[in-house]
Amino acid sequence: MKAKVLIRPKDGILDPQGKAVERALPALGFEGVSHVRVGRLVELETDDPDALADLCEKLLANPLIEDYEIELNGGARG
C-alpha cells in the first residue's frame, strides 16, 4: 500500500528555514505571504500500514520537535 507521511516542525518551534523563505519572497515580487513553515514529505510503500504510526514515532519524526500526518492511498489518517 502506498502512503505519504507529512512531517512539520511543531507549532511554537522557531523554523528559521521557513523564515528565510518568507523573507526572500518580497524580493521576487510576492507580497502578503506569511507564516511559512518548511517540513518534509516521505513517500513509501508498506505491507503493514498499522505499523506506520510506530515507524513515524521511532524514526521518521522526532515527536519532541515535529508533528506528522499519515495519508494512505489518498485518504487522511492519524
Partner: peptide
C-alpha cells in the same frame, strides 16, 4: 538525544 540517552533535541541554528 535521538537515542533517548539524553533529553532534548538539536535544531538548525537560528541563523541557518
Amino acid at each position: 538525544c535521538e537515542s533517548g540517552l539524553l533529553p532534548g533535541a538539536l535544531l538548525t541554528n537560528e541563523s541557518l
